[in-house]
């Protein structure tokens, strides 16, 4: 891509490459150990089982890239499943009315939190914590029990399989992939995306450079809210029910996926492809544990914790190296002045 390409990977790709290597090693180890693991369908199943998490993690990536955090995503997912189920079953609304409504609601919740964060200068952590309580609380005002969904559209989304070359995925995976592609385009090729990186790099500078900090910051929380709602819709396809206890702790999974995908929690650095890899790492851990049968489910959490630790310390080391070299080493990128043109 660069005008003067070099053979060494640029420093900013190191975390993503590390995640890719980790994923390859985990998959390789799984394939060696369990015969059926090598089947390509296993990888596709990782996507089938985690499509909703992928969508949520995409929204989280936007937020974390600006240096913020969104704790409300799991609750918004739950609220979406609950509201969809309730509208479909109790109010007998048609799907084409329910879908836009729940997506809009998610985006609105995000918008509201974004406005409070930006205009009242309250930490994202605490605002989205309130949002988390609010969304879960709203779930229980609808019902404290699980509501099954038997809408034909929902059923068809749950049951149908998209086949390609002997393998299959669910429609939700396709939705998730579209979301990933759109998000990657937005981050890489639009002003909004670049402003997200700029704000994450230095909010003060972004303001002084005349970038629309307010609009961008509110936009990322809106995007995260929308992605959570969409993730909730996908989860309701997967579960065919709405329940206030769905997606408890999903915010942690989403944050973990983003961090393991190499995005700096302090903002400004990371790629969407890393997030996809991060979600896959989480999915493969679960798959290995399911395949093994003797390993217990809680090892998932412990392994995720260890990975978080490794990646966070890695980030810390990279950051420390960066700050040390920047002011003290002018030789790192020599300034080359071309000779003034002869006149």
């Amino acid at each position: 891509m660069s005008a003067r390409s070099s053979y060494l990977p640029s420093g900013r790709y190191v975390p993503v490459l590390a995640t890719l290597a980790l994923l390859a090693v985990m998959y390789g180890a799984g394939a060696l150990r369990y015969e059926a693991f090598g089947d390509g369908q296993v990888i596709l199943n990782v996507f089938v089982d985690n499509a909703f998490l992928l969508v949520v993690a995409v929204g989280m990536t936007f937020v974390i890239l600006t240096g913020g955090i969104d704790l409300s995503v799991g609750s918004v997912v739950a609220l979406t499943t609950m509201l969809s189920a309730s509208l479909l079953k109790d109010q007998a609304w048609p799907p084409y009315a329910v879908l836009p409504l729940v997506l809009l609601l998610g985006a609105l919740l995000g918008l509201g939190m974004g406005c409070v964060i930006h205009y009242f200068e309250i930490q994202p952590f605490i605002v989205t914590l309130a949002g988390m309580f609010l969304a879960r609380g709203l779930c229980y005002t609808i019902s404290t029990a699980s509501i099954p969904i038997d809408d034909p559209f929902w059923r068809s989304m749950a049951d149908s399989k998209v086949r390609l070359a002997g393998y299959f995925v669910s429609p939700s995976v396709l939705v998730a992939l579209v979301v990933v592609l759109v998000a990657a385009y937005v981050l890489g090729y639009t002003r909004l995306g670049r402003n997200v990186y700029a704000i994450g790099g230095s909010p003060g500078s972004a303001l002084l450079m005349g970038l629309p900090v307010a609009r961008t910051r509110i936009a990322v929380y809106t995007i995260s809210g929308f992605c959570s709602a969409l993730g909730g819709v996908l989860l309701s396809f997967y579960m065919l029910s709405g329940y206030g206890l769905h997606a408890v702790g999903m915010e942690l999974d989403a944050i973990a996926a983003v961090v393991i995908g190499g995005t700096l929690l302090t903002g400004g650095s990371g790629y969407l492809v890393g997030t996809v890899l991060g979600v896959m790492v989480l999915g493969v851990i679960q798959t290995i544990i399911t395949f093994d049968g003797t390993l217990s489910s809680w090892w998932t959490k412990i392994v995720i914790g260890v990975l978080l630790f490794v990646f966070i310390v890695l980030q810390r080391l990279i950051a420390a190296r960066g700050t040390r070299s920047a002011p003290a080493a002018p030789e790192s990128a020599p300034l080359t002045l071309t000779a003034p043109p002869a006149r």
Partner: peptide, 23 residues
């Protein structure tokens, strides 16, 4: 010691700790 932001550092134990407890 390491200088990790508190919210991030304690997130590690928040996630892994549940697993440890179940272990």
């Amino acid at each position: 010691g390491v200088g990790v932001q508190p919210i991030i550092a304690t997130l590690i134990l928040m996630v892994a700790g549940r697993g440890l407890a179940q272990l």
